[in-house]
């Protein structure tokens, strides 16, 4: 495992959003160089957690620590190195792939050389090289998500937060997208956090965190969790908890 990367530690995070207690004392650790899956049903608090990690929301109580090998760093020091892809995928329909990359390049203030190299690598990895002149409004669902991803990867982040990136994408494109994440993990020193409500995607992660009602249910390697819970899939794991909640 690469050692220069960033790891995150969340302790006792509480957040109330209007009437609902979105996070209720959340504890989680994310290790550098791994793909972490944050799995949970709708409304479990996945997006709220990511927004806290991204510094868009501030917790009522609790702490988020950002760590490098040589010790803790503040969020503002890390900010340049965190990329975030929001759930409602945000691209400009009238701009082409090329124009998107150009705009994000100015947002991230990349030098000409860095940009050229990065652009080539990312387009190749995402297999979008042939479509650079195509407008975002003319891209398929899968390509659209990939474009969103490479835009956020342009700045070579150390931490990548993906909020339900494969939501509403067909199974083939989903597989394609995950392949892209694996390639990325292989080639770069990066911590990837993916939230998803597709339970089958849990198995694709190296470490999963089961989130329910703003609390952490379980953390660990997906296989180990299934063995421990004697379940075949993560659906079953959640069903077990659901049954526990309903029985008095």
């Amino acid at each position: 495992m690469n050692t220069s990367g960033v790891s995150l530690k969340v302790t006792g995070l509480f957040k109330k959003l209007r009437q609902t207690q979105a996070l209720q004392g959340l504890d989680m650790t994310f290790e550098s160089g791994l793909i972490h899956g944050i799995i949970g049903p709708e409304g479990a608090g996945k997006t709220t957690l990511l927004r806290h990690l991204m510094g868009l929301l501030h917790a009522d109580r609790g702490e988020i620590q950002y760590r490098r090998q040589d010790g803790d760093i503040s969020f503002s020091e890390l900010r340049q190195n965190i990329a975030y892809m929001p759930q409602t995928q945000s691209l400009y329909p009238e701009l082409s792939i090329h124009e998107h990359l150009e705009f994000f390049r100015t947002l991230y203030q990349l030098s000409d050389q860095d940009y050229a190299e990065r652009r080539r690598a990312l387009l190749q990895m995402s297999r979008l090289e042939e479509f650079t002149e195509r407008l975002a409004s003319e891209l398929s669902g899968g390509m659209y998500k990939k474009l969103g991803l490479i835009c956020s990867l342009l700045a070579s982040p150390l931490v990548l937060l993906l909020d339900e990136p494969t939501n509403g994408v067909d199974p083939l494109s989903r597989r394609d997208f995950w392949q892209l994440l694996y390639d990325l993990q292989k080639s770069e020193d990066i911590l990837i956090l993916v939230t998803t409500s597709y339970m089958d995607e849990a198995l694709k992660c190296q470490k999963v965190h089961l989130l329910f009602d703003g609390k952490t249910l379980l953390e660990g390697q997906p296989d180990a969790i299934l063995q421990q819970k004697k379940c075949k899939s993560f659906d079953e794991v959640f069903l077990q908890y659901d049954a526990l909640e309903e029985s008095p």
Binding site: L56, Y84, T88, Q89, L91, Q109
Partner: peptide, 13 residues
């Protein structure tokens, strides 16, 4: 409306 605003806010500018 598009949601791109969140990206702008999250960008390091």
């Amino acid at each position: 409306e598009l949601g791109t605003f969140e990206t702008l806010i999250a960008a390091p500018v």
